[in-house]
Nucleic acid binder design. Structure first.
Lengths: 198, 198
DNA sequence: TCACCCGGTAGACACTGTCTACGGCCATTT
DNA sequence: AAATGGCCGTAGACAGTGTCTACCGGGTGA
């Protein structure tokens, strides 16, 4: 009877492994995401994950995809939150704030999401998980500053956000700038790329 | 007789291990910096490094410090290169360009230098290796834009450079912006943080 | 000459990711 | 109803890792 089972949301081991991974990275950090530890916490033998994830990297990628999904959800929630259509500049501020807040709330997950070997492995499916978010960023930049190259400015702004998130997360920026809150940096970046006036 | 040997530049095993590490990371990437592989290439047993570096992380930190030194050297060379005192804005462009070029030339080393567990371990001595460079950045920003908070702008700009370097290095920005050279992004960032006019 | 200690060796240990052979259970089939 | 086959998880082996400990060889001091 169940010969295809297209529904992937069942409570099988595959999903449970990813669940465990998401919890584990939140609690113990990215370096704790051992294949064997995930299997242990899922209550199966260390060979079991191989049935669904041929390699450790693919399991990690599946976990990271959850992170991208969560980030996308938060971003959407923030942007579509206003009752009326808020000015693009404000939406961009909210979006950027949500991005940084996510990176700080979910240090381990953010770190996992931007591991080079994951990104380069191609298992992440960035084109599906991350590009929509970037697309929205480009769109908003295009509205806020029609005079600029939206893709370029959006790229530079994204890089700025990523840099702030990363450097802030390990304390370099606090040490360098003496700040104790990332808000000034965020606003400086927004003002820089989008202009402070309008 | 040799009871103190303050001179640390001798050709002992300590320095040889770091040399090997620098070569190895340039040739094979950051993930190749195994303790045992470094020892192998240095022609000693796997236990030998422990005499000088109690832990793997401390050896990696010593290698990364070479990277920071090299980066600082390149930055100084570029800034002090002009015969006359070039405008601060131009010096900033050169400095930023050198930074990005270093990150791209020495992918593996750059990756190693900004490994969170190295930065957080405290073995890097960032206060000595990296802060001078940042100080020069602050100084130049202060000259170029006396109307702004130099430390804040310098921090945001540094984060921007770091983000561009990282995202560019694994291809995300190419994919997102469609660019095939990082120069436009660099100029966009510089214009954004320092203004395009003057 | 003897003792000492510095610097490197060699083996063990726990842990990792991957691979392979095995088994047990469910569902289909005859 | 009994037999068959395939899916899913187990268990053990293997090479490799970082760390720890016991050893020891040879040069320097007394």
């Amino acid at each position: 009877m169940p010969l295809e089972e297209v529904d992937e949301t069942e409570t099988g081991l595959r999903a449970r492994l990813v669940d465990v991974g998401v919890d584990l990275v939140a609690q113990e950090g990215a370096q704790a995401l051992t294949l064997r530890e995930i299997a242990r916490r899922a209550g199966v033998s260390h060979g079991a994950p191989r049935r669904y994830f041929p390699t450790h990297l693919e399991l990690l990628s599946a976990i990271a995809r959850r992170g991208f999904a969560e980030l996308g959800k938060r971003a959407s929630a923030v942007v579509e939150h206003g009752d009326g259509p808020a000015p693009a500049r404000e939406q961009l501020a909210s979006l950027a704030g949500a991005y940084l807040q996510f990176a700080l709330d979910s240090r381990g997950m953010y770190e996992l999401m931007f591991r080079h070997d994951l990104l380069e492995s191609g298992h992440l499916g960035l084109r599906d998980t991350s590009l929509p978010l970037f697309g929205r960023l480009v769109e908003l930049v295009g509205v806020a500053r029609p005079d600029l190259d939206a893709r370029l400015v959006a790229g530079a702004l994204w890089a700025n956000l990523h840099g702030i998130a990363q450097l802030w997360n390990w304390g370099s920026l606090q040490l360098a700038t003496g700040a104790e809150d990332f808000a000034p940096l965020l606003h400086a970046a927004l003002d820089a790329h989008l202009g402070s006036g309008e």
